[in-house]
């Protein structure tokens, strides 16, 4: 029962994830007083890629061909370790939030390798920058989740991807985590999804040589990863309903609340993107350094008992 619900949840999450990206675009366009593409545009893109043929560079190896499957597969596997709709539907004794982060690392590792595999300078540049930013993201992500878990969990609580109630330290940690989310979902001020300018692109540079179904897989993976980060943020900042049962009515209520949280996240991300400019690559280290300070601050606050 629980296993099938988990699979269902994973399926819905993967299918629904592009909608979140479409919604963020819509929010941004509304703020810029533009009409913009429809909500379903990410779906149309994926469908378009699926119908196209694929050009693979002669310079590449099996790493390049298998990377889309590995990236999307590991992202789907990561869905098992984060509470998406309901808290009862996560981490069935397999691991904790570290497993989630390291599954992301796995996908990133292969994506960066694929960027180098084409022999194009763009790909290499993207890989280098992605790994550079990831190395500052990881300490902040792990530390802020640890602070929340250490503050609110039961005395025996582990590093789980959710808190047990709202707290002041949790909010500060969520601020740090929000900055991480901006970096991890290739958002302004760290990266810019809307451009293919070699000076600025990071995530897109690694994907530059992909086409057809492979590109569709990688885009789906990016949408899903974004949804996972938003869920994590929601589960840490505003956990509700806590410890609910696996009964269908409870899950439905939790799912409705979840949708509300994701919408809120998307609006905030859209607002941030519109109101900030992209940073120079080396300023990103400072940006994430600030996020690290926030997570340390959260720890201090949690030490004071708030």
């Amino acid at each position: 029962m629980k296993a099938s619900l988990l699979l269902l949840q994973a399926g819905i999450a993967v299918l629904g994830a592009p909608l979140v990206s479409g919604f963020i675009r819509k929010v941004k366009n509304a703020l810029r007083m533009r009409q913009g593409a429809s909500l379903g545009q990410p779906y149309y893109n994926i469908a378009k890629y699926m119908a196209k043929e694929e050009v693979v560079s002669e310079a590449t190896s099996w790493i390049f061909r298998w990377t889309p499957s590995i990236v999307l597969g590991s992202t789907v596997a990561a869905l098992m370790f984060v509470p998406v709709f309901s808290f009862s539907l996560s981490a069935p004794g397999m691991g904790d939030v570290l497993t989630l982060f390291f599954l992301f690392s796995l996908g990133r590792f292969f994506l960066a390798l694929a960027g180098l595999d084409t022999g194009s300078a763009f790909g290499g540049m993207g890989s280098s920058r992605e790994m550079f930013i990831a190395s500052f993201v990881e300490p902040v992500a792990i530390l802020s989740v640890a602070v929340v878990a250490g503050h609110s969990a039961s005395p025996q609580g582990g590093l789980m991807a959710c808190s047990m109630g709202m707290s002041f330290s949790g909010m500060v940690a969520a601020a740090a985590l929000f900055m991480v989310v901006l970096a991890e979902t290739s958002r302004i001020p760290v990266d810019n999804q809307e451009t293919h300018l070699e000076l600025t692109m990071i995530h897109e540079a690694m994907l530059l040589e992909y086409s057809g179904p492979s590109l569709a897989m990688l885009e789906t993976a990016a949408h899903t990863k974004q949804l996972i980060w938003f869920s994590l943020l929601g589960a840490i900042l505003w956990p509700w309903p806590v410890g609910s049962s696996a009964a269908l009515s409870d899950i439905a209520a939790a799912a409705a609340f979840f949708v509300l949280k994701i919408v809120l996240c998307a609006v905030i991300v859209g607002l941030t993107e519109v109101s900030l400019a992209k940073m120079r690559l080396f300023r990103v280290a400072d940006f994430l350094g600030l996020a690290f300070l926030f997570s340390v601050l959260a720890l201090v606050i949690s030490g004071l008992g708030y």
Partner: peptide, 27 residues
């Protein structure tokens, strides 16, 4: 992980209308 990768691979294999791979040069 294995199930995720296999599911994704099979799904794309079965649904992509033209899973044609053309060898080309890097852009």
């Amino acid at each position: 992980l294995g199930a995720g990768i296999a599911a994704v691979y099979l799904f794309v294999r079965l649904t992509a209308r033209k899973r044609v791979m053309t060898a080309g040069r890097t852009w």
